[in-house]
Design a protein around this nucleic acid. Structure first.
Lengths: 345, 345
DNA sequence: ATTAGCACTCGGACGGCAAGAGTGCTAACA
DNA sequence: TGTTAGCACTCTTGCCGTCCGAGTGCTAAT
C-alpha cells in the first residue's frame, strides 16, 4: 500500500496527465499543485513510484506518465465512494434530455448512446437487451389489402416487432383472428428461446385447415423472433476521438475506428465484463485485444424491473476522465432504467 | 472548345491526379502516358491550359493539378455517354448484395448507404423519401393488455409505422375496430399532407361517444404522420474519408465530419440538385457552402413506380473517381428502384 | 528526511544545404 | 510554324548540426 504522500503525488500526476496529455516533471508538478515539499523530494517519490510500477517515462529524461496500474488504483478508489457526488445540474440535464423519448425500447437505447456521446464528448456504445428470456405478450395478424398479412409481435418489455407476410392466399380478417388467438394461447408466457424450440407446424394441428397459409407464416414468425433475440450494438460519437491528441496520428485513429466497427469483437469484450449492477472498467492492456492496449472502456448496466438486461458505455484513451465519466454514467444508467421500467408498467 | 491534343493532355492530368493525388509535371506525364510529343510541347500545352483556367499550380515551380472547371468538363463528357459500360461482374455483385433485403423501405434505404460505402470506399449518403404525397392504405388499432393501444399505419408504398397510445380507458377490441374502420373511411386515399390538415376532433363527430379516448389518439396519429413525412438522411462510411491523403490532416477531417453530421445542411444541398432522373454532380466550389470547397458530391435518384422519391449519393475529395462512381451509382439506383417497386406491387 | 545544486540527457524548434522535380524561355530544327 | 533540346531558375523536401528548455539522478549540505 502506498503511503499518503506517495498517493497524493500519484493522484496529482494522474489528474495532470488526464488534463494535459503531457508527461509531467517534478518541478512543474510542485508549481501546479500545493504538495508542501520541494521538487527534489517529489523527484525521489516519483522515482519510487516508477520502481513500484505506477509511473513510466516516455524517454530517459522526460517527465512521467501514469501506468495502467496507476489508473487501476485510481478508479478503484473512485468506485469505492458509494454514493457519487451527484451534480444536481447534470442530473437534471440528463433527465430532461432523456425525457423527450418515445416508448420504443430500441430507440431509447440507440438515443442513449447518442446523448451520452454528445454529453461527454467521448465515443459511446450501447447494447440492446438479450431478449432470450423475455416473453410474448401478444401476437396479431392484420390483413393488408393486396400486400399480405402484417404480423405484429408485442413483448412484455414493450418491444414491438412487425413484419409482412406476403402471400396470395385468400383469407379473411376473421380467420386471421382465429389463428392469432390460437397463437396467443400457445405462446402465452413462453420465453423467446422456448418458442424458437417448439415453433413448427405440428404445434398447430387444431387449425390444420389453414396449413398452406401457416407454412409461410411460421417462417416469418421465426425470423422475427430471431431478430428480436439478436443483440444489437450501437455506437455513437466515433468522431469525438479525433479531438484527443493521442489520435492526431491518422493511423491510430483508423485502427481505433476499425475496432469500434467490429461490433462482434466489441460485443464480446463488453459482454465479458461482470453483469453485476454497477460500473465496470477495462483499462488499457487489461483488455485482451492487444492492438488497442491504450484505450479504456467504462460500462454501466441498465435494468428492467431489477434485472440487468443491457449495457451502455464510453470508450476513450486510457487517460480518460474517469471521475466525471463514472458519475455521468451512473446517473445515466439509472435514468434509462427508470424509463424502461415506466414503459413496462 | 479545346482542341484534341489539349483535351488529351487535360484528361491525362485528371486521371493521373485522381490516381495519385500528386501534382504532375510535363516530363512525368510523358513518361506515364503515350502522348506522342515531347515534354517541352506538353509544357506549352499545360501553360495554355492554365491560362484557360483548367489547371492550377500549388506553387510557382510545381506540377499542375486540375481545377474544378477541368473536372466539370470531364464529368460532363462522362455523363454524355448514355448507356454506361456496365461492368457485368459489378452489376451482379450489387444485385446479389441488395437481394438479401427485408421489405421495410427505411431499412432498404439505410442499408443501401451501407452497401454503397463498403463497395466504393467513399462516404455515402441516402435520403428517405418525402412521403407528403403518399397515401394511407390502412390504419389499425390493436389492444395490448395493460399497455394501451397499438396504432399501426400502413402506407401505399409499404412503409409501416407503429406507435403505442398509452391510456387507461377501458375500451374493447370491438370498439377499436369501429374506430379504425371509421378512420379508414375518412383517411382513404388522402395524402399525408391532407390528413395533417384535416386531422382534428371535429372530423369524428359520428363517433363522438369515444371523444375522451380520441383526444389522445389524434395526437398520437398526428405525431406518427409527422414522423413519416419527415425526410431522414443516413450517412455511412464516414471513416473512409480518412484514407484519402487530403484528409490526413486531422483538422480537415474534422471539418469534413462536422459537415456530414450537419444533416440539415446536407439535406438542403442535395435537395437543391435537380430532381430529374439521373446523376447529379456538385464539384468543389460549385457548392454554395464555402467551408468545403474541395469536396464533391455525386447523387443519383431512386424512384417508386417511376416517380423520383429520394436520393442516394457519394461524397469525397474533388479528386474523386468519377468514372467508376458514376457507373456504380447508376447501377445501384436502378436496382434500388426495382426493389422498391417490387415491395410496392 | 529534505533540499539545493549541478552535470547530464533528450526532444523539438530553427537554419542552412543539397537533391529532385518542375517551370519558362530561348534558340535550333524539320 | 509547330516541335524540341537545353539551360537557368524556383520551390519543396529531407537531412544535419546546433541550441534551448524541461527533465532526471546524484551528491553534499542542512
Amino acid at each position: 500500500m502506498l503511503d499518503e504522500r506517495k498517493q497524493k503525488v500519484l493522484y496529482a500526476i494522474i489528474k495532470s496527465y488526464i488534463e494535459s496529455a503531457e508527461p509531467i516533471g517534478s518541478r512543474t508538478l510542485t508549481k501546479k499543485y500545493q504538495l508542501g515539499v520541494s521538487s527534489a523530494t517529489i523527484r525521489n517519490e516519483m522515482s519510487d513510484l516508477e520502481d513500484l510500477g505506477y509511473l513510466m517515462k516516455t524517454h530517459s529524461s522526460s517527465g512521467r506518465i501514469p501506468s495502467d496500474k496507476a489508473y487501476r488504483l485510481y478508479v478503484d478508489e473512485l468506485l469505492k465512494i458509494e454514493t457519487p457526488l451527484v451534480d444536481q445540474k447534470e442530473n437534471e440535464e440528463i433527465k430532461e434530455v432523456l425525457s423527450n423519448e418515445s416508448w420504443d425500447m430500441d430507440e431509447i437505447i440507440q438515443n442513449s448512446a447518442k446523448i451520452l456521446s454528445a454529453l461527454t464528448k467521448y465515443t459511446s456504445i450501447a447494447a440492446t437487451p438479450k431478449l432470450k428470456n423475455s416473453r410474448i405478450k401478444n401476437i396479431q395478424l392484420i390483413e393488408i389489402y393486396s400486400m399480405g398479412v402484417l404480423v405484429v409481435i408485442v413483448c412484455n418489455n414493450g418491444i414491438i416487432k412487425n413484419s409482412i407476410y406476403r402471400c396470395d392466399l385468400d383469407i379473411t380478417q376473421d380467420e386471421l383472428n382465429i389463428i392469432s388467438n390460437y397463437f396467443n394461447k400457445v405462446f402465452k408466457d413462453r420465453t423467446m428461446d422456448e418458442i424458437l424450440n417448439i415453433l413448427s407446424l405440428e404445434q398447430f394441428k387444431e387449425i390444420y385447415k389453414y396449413r398452406d397459409f401457416l407454412k409461410g407464416l411460421v417462417d416469418v414468425i421465426q425470423n422475427s423472433i430471431e431478430e428480436l433475440v439478436e443483440i444489437e450494438l450501437y455506437s455513437e460519437g466515433l468522431m469525438n476521438i479525433l479531438n484527443f491528441p493521442e489520435f492526431k496520428d491518422v493511423e491510430k485513429a483508423k485502427s481505433f475506428i476499425s475496432f469500434i466497427e467490429d461490433k462482434d469483437l466489441l460485443l464480446n469484450i463488453i459482454q465479458n465484463t461482470s453483469m453485476s449492477k454497477g460500473i465496470d472498467i477495462i483499462i488499457g492492456q487489461e483488455n485482451v485485444y492487444s492492438p488497442l492496449k491504450d484505450i479504456s472502456i467504462i460500462t454501466a448496466t441498465y435494468t428492467l424491473s431489477g434485472r440487468t438486461i443491457g449495457k451502455v458505455g464510453l470508450i476513450g484513451p486510457t487517460r480518460m476522465d474517469y471521475l466525471n465519466l463514472i458519475r455521468t454514467l451512473q446517473i445515466f444508467s439509472s435514468h434509462v432504467s427508470n424509463i424502461l421500467d415506466l414503459g413496462d408498467k
